[in-house]
Design a protein around this nucleic acid. Structure first.
Length: 925
RNA sequence: AGGCGCGUAGCUCAGUUGGUUAGAGCGCUACCUUGACAUGGUAGAGGUCACCAGUUCGAAUCUGGUCGUGCCUACCA
């Protein structure tokens, strides 16, 4: 074994072996455990969020597999309708191909080609993360079986009256030219203007203030061409008398009524609102209440259509705005223009300004589905971790709006509906079924609906669709409901809520019992990682490393805002002057786990991954130590364990208790710190050091040596298995090395049993002994360190005080004490004898003394003591204050009071001892 | 405007039911190539737990408020 752990040399080969051996498929007769992967975009590539999420899922799956569960991690990818179609369109456009020229079928063929070409990227990258996904059951949201499930769901919902088609105002993306759902609209804060226009009153009417016009304010001047009313508040005295009167709509030259509606806020603007029912959701509601006509002035690309006056036809929204404002200005009808901050709705994929637009779309009547889904969380059938996300879920679900599921796209599940020449619609699983069900003769020509279903409609069926539904398969029976969904809070509405609704409706089961919501991965300053900001990290670069120039090139290429390139380059060169080192998958995974505190976003800190890379190296070298020191170990020989053996097994048991709790509560950070703490600070720092004197002394009793060697193997075996879910590769690599040296390790670590706390005895007396030893050693080291005594300098050690047990412990641990404290001899001060000038530290009741003997400067030692005395003095004062408080003594539990009393007594005694020592020293100085 | 978080050492974060000398990693200081590991070892410095008030014998922890900050939801044209 090399003296440095080299992840690049082992990871991919181990993964290939696991996969070839079929270790990822569920096995055995244990209770089923199942996680369905949130399907990544089939044409996508791995980013930090994926890597984080998959680390957590893989840790859970590996843990449960080792706990004996029949663990299935269901793999699959998503066709990701809009984003995939956009991507392929762009690629074709680059080759000079327009999708409309080649037609639907040819375009879809191109998308499948692209999937075949790029679809392996993400799946290969998931393998690099060590994800133990069952590839043999990989699914795709557009595969035949899944498509069948989608059609089945659509048809059944339609037959139940829960899907309907209707003309409605929807969020229209004029760039992609498709409807999108409310959730796909991002409202961005932008600076705009509030234009105040004068609409002249008809019939010589005037306002209470005497104006012969009303002033309306708008952020979208161009929509005035579609105004069909002006609304005021019914109780607004300024305009009350004008209700029922009309204004002349400028430019359009139409008369439109003045109506009263409580929707109007009197305090805002002038208290008059222009109403454009065809182009604004609120106005649409007002229009419905007042039976106003809808004038649609836009075509699908949001250019002005022929419903508007001729001069504006063919103008884009932006041009129309400019023209409308200019024309009104020319007419003297612009009252004022003021700057105004507003929310602009933009499509989450295209970034285009969304237009509320009137079209025929398919909707899900969602309320009947939402009710049981709310109940399932209320009654605890599904639990969110952390719990506060249940409130987010409830808030949205209780005010849920009908779901627009049709998209005017080509890539996706084409809606199983057929129209005849008269526009009648027939919904069925196939055209044949439509004809048969409705008795349509072959002569009747039917055309299938062009629209496809939005991607989330199909992903909503993920947990049961991937397991074979609508067939009642054995897998469905065994693995559904799944155990936990691991996902980010950004898709609770998009996906989690819809899965719960659909799954309950079609299977009468919840899709999962727990929803673990992890945070989003951000950069070290808490900013979202993005290509535009150039602050993103590629998980594979953290695993494999990348040189500075390649990193700069990667971050500055294909920018949507190329002017950002110099700033990004500079920031990159500052942060990564040497590029990024290869940390390996295990270090990356361990970092994710360590940072995964619940309910909190993750700031990815390079310092952490470096630290955990070092941790991997530590584990590697500790194993090397074990291997060289178990040479010649005979498992059949007589063996005897010592206190240190029983102590480390006790600590192991404690660490395993922490791990069991951590896994059961999804506290990956606690799991990581329990492992780190045990392996580094107990196993390496103390146990391995304590074994050295024993193992390296030729006179050591053979049985004792064998006992320690056996313990080394036992603990190493257990900690490798304990760490495996978080660090699969290094633990497997070491496991195999161990297997070559000991019968305690064989086969793959993946399929070994997870070590449990109950398997290891907690030995109180051994713990007491080793903790005592550690205290004495630390006392000596403190003196040594503070006095700047060279580590190579051997010291004489004088002990005093304590009781018979202290003497016994000192006696039985003399060798260990001498070695770890670098002490040449240990002497107990004779009763009544005077100690030579010495430095003093306390370990409980034991006075730990190091003779000055020309090694220690009296002045420095005095300073050290004074510091210690001050610290103790402060502490004692605090304790005495507390104990002097009658209320504390009377009201606090006796246990607490006793504890504080004991502490005070101990501090007092220590303080006295140190003060005496200080006096003695001063005499010397 | 509402809702949910967050504010603990220079940085990134723990701190489970109120009682610890408030912890870890990185960074920092000093010393050390001792036969697993310098991606290491030993010792050390560093925090009025954002602020104010309250509950309590006792508050980083519970309550109310203030300030700062982040996210989500919402119909102010």
């Amino acid at each position: 074994m090399n003296n440095q752990f080299d992840p690049s040399g082992i990871e991919q080969a181990l993964y290939a072996e696991w996969e070839a051996a079929g270790h990822f498929a569920p096995a055995g007769n244990g209770d089923p455990y199942c996680i369905a992967i949130p399907p990544p975009n089939v044409t996508g590539s791995l980013h930090m969020g994926h890597a984080f999420q998959h680390t957590l899922m893989d840790a859970l799956i590996r843990y449960q597999r080792m706990r004996g569960r029949s663990a299935l991690w269901q793999m699959g990818t998503d066709h990701a309708g809009i984003s995939t179609q956009m991507l392929v369109e762009r690629r074709l456009a680059a080759q000079g191909i327009e999708k409309d020229n080649i037609g639907r079928d040819a375009f879809i063929d191109k998308v499948w080609e692209w999937k075949a070409e790029s679809g392996g990227t993400i799946t290969q990258q998931l393998r690099r993360m060590g994800s133990s996904l069952d590839w043999s059951r990989e699914r795709f949201t557009l595969d035949d079986g899944f498509s069948r499930a989608v059609r089945e769901v659509f048809v059944r919902l339609f037959e139940e009256g829960l899907i309907y088609r209707g003309q409605r105002l929807v969020n229209w993306d004029p760039e992609l030219q498709t409807a999108i759902s409310d959730l796909e609209v991002e409202n961005t804060d932008e600076q705009g203007h509030l234009w105040h226009f004068r609409y002249p009153l008809n019939d010589g009417r005037t306002t209470a203030a005497g104006a012969d016009y009303l002033v309306v304010a708008t952020t979208r001047p161009e929509t005035m061409l579609g105004d069909t009313a002006v609304a005021v508040h019914p109780d607004d005295d300024r305009y009350r008398d004008l209700i029922g009167a009309s204004v002349r709509l400028p430019l359009a030259g139409r008369d439109i009524p003045i109506i009263a509606d409580t929707y109007v806020e009197r305090e805002f603007g002038t208290g008059c609102v222009k109403i454009t029912p065809a182009h604004d959701f609120n106005d649409n509601d007002v229009g419905t209440r007042h039976d106003l006509p809808l004038i649609n002035i836009f075509d699908a690309s949001a250019t002005i259509n022929d419903q508007a006056p001729e001069t504006y036809r063919g103008l884009t929204r932006e041009d129309a705005r400019t023209r409308v404002v200019a024309d009104l200005e020319a007419l003297g009808l612009v009252d004022k223009i003021e700057p105004h901050a507003l929310k602009v709705p933009r499509g989450d994929r295209s970034g285009a300004v969304i237009e509320p637009w009137l079209t025929n779309q398919w909707f899900v009547d969602i309320k009947p589905l939402a009710e049981p889904a709310i109940a399932a969380v209320e009654d605890g059938s599904i639990e969110f971790v952390p719990k506060q996300y249940e409130n987010t879920y409830f808030a949205w679900m209780r005010d849920i709006q009908d779901w627009c599921i049709s998209r005017q796209q080509w890539w996706g599940h084409r809606i199983p509906a057929w129209f005849d020449a008269d526009g009648n619609v027939y919904v069925a699983r196939s055209e044949a079924e439509a004809r048969q069900k409705h008795g349509l003769a072959d002569e009747v020509s039917l055309t299938q609906e062009d629209d496809v279903l939005e991607t989330w409609f199909s992903s909503a069926l993920w947990t049961f669709g991937t397991l074979g539904w609508p067939e009642q398969t054995a897998e469905l029976e065994k693995y559904h409901p799944t155990d936990v969904l691991v996902t980010g809070h950004d898709i609770i509405f998009f996906w989690v809520a819809r899965m719960i609704m659909m799954t309950l409706h079609f299977t009468n089961e919840v899709p999962f019992r727990k929803v673990y919501i992890h945070g989003l991965v951000r950069d070290e300053h808490g900013r979202k990682m993005s290509k535009t900001k150039g602050n993103g990290l590629d998980p594979l670069d953290l695993i494999d490393g990348i040189d500075l120039e390649s990193l700069v090139a990667k971050r500055t290429s294909n920018l949507t805002q190329p002017q950002m390139a110099p700033a990004i380059e500079q920031a990159t060169r500052t942060q990564f002057p040497e590029g990024i080192a290869a940390y390996g998958t295990d270090a990356l995974r361990f970092t994710y786990c360590a940072l995964a505190s619940t309910g909190r976003d993750v700031r990815f800190d390079m310092g952490r991954i470096e630290g955990y890379r070092n941790f991997c190296n530590k584990l590697w070298n500790a194993s090397r130590f074990v291997f060289t020191n178990i040479e010649g170990f005979d498992p059949n020989a007589e063996r005897r364990t010592s206190d240190i053996d029983r102590w480390i097994l006790s600590r192991l048991s404690k660490a395993l208790t922490d791990l069991e709790l951590a896994f059961s509560t999804y506290r990956f950070d606690m799991a990581a710190s329990a492992l780190y703490e045990f392996i580094w600070h107990e196993f390496c720092d103390w146990y391995l050091e304590l074994t050295k004197p024993l193992l390296w002394d030729e006179d050591t009793d053979a049985a004792l040596r064998a006992g320690t060697q056996a313990t080394l193997i036992t603990v190493l075996s257990a900690l490798l298995r304990a760490a495996h879910p978080l660090m699969p590769f290094i633990t497997e690599a070491i496991w195999r090395e161990l297997g070559e040296r000991s019968a305690d390790a064989a086969g793959t670590i993946m399929l070994q049993s997870y070590p449990l706390a109950a398997e290891f005895d907690v030995d109180e007396s051994a713990t007491t002994a080793v903790e005592w030893l550690k205290r004495i050693i630390e006392a000596v080291r403190n003196i040594r360190g503070e006095a700047n005594i060279k580590p190579s300098q051997e010291l004489g050690l004088l002990l005093d005080g304590g009781d018979a047990q202290d003497r016994r412990l000192a006696d039985s641990n003399a060798t260990l004490l001498m070695r770890l404290a670098r002490v040449s001899e240990i002497t107990w001060l004779d009763a009544g004898a005077e100690a030579p000038a010495h430095a003093l530290a306390l370990a409980g009741d034991v006075r730990v003394m190091v003779p000055l003997a020309g090694l220690i400067d009296v002045g420095e030692e005095t300073a050290r003591l004074e510091k210690e005395i001050e610290r103790l003095g402060k502490d004692l004062k605090r304790l005495q204050g507390k104990l002097g408080n009658e209320n504390f003594v009377a009201k606090a539990p006796a246990e607490v009071v006793d504890k504080e009393r004991a502490k005070a007594a101990e501090r007092e005694q220590a303080l006295n001892t140190l003060r005496e020592q200080l006096e003695d020293l001063k005499k010397l100085g």
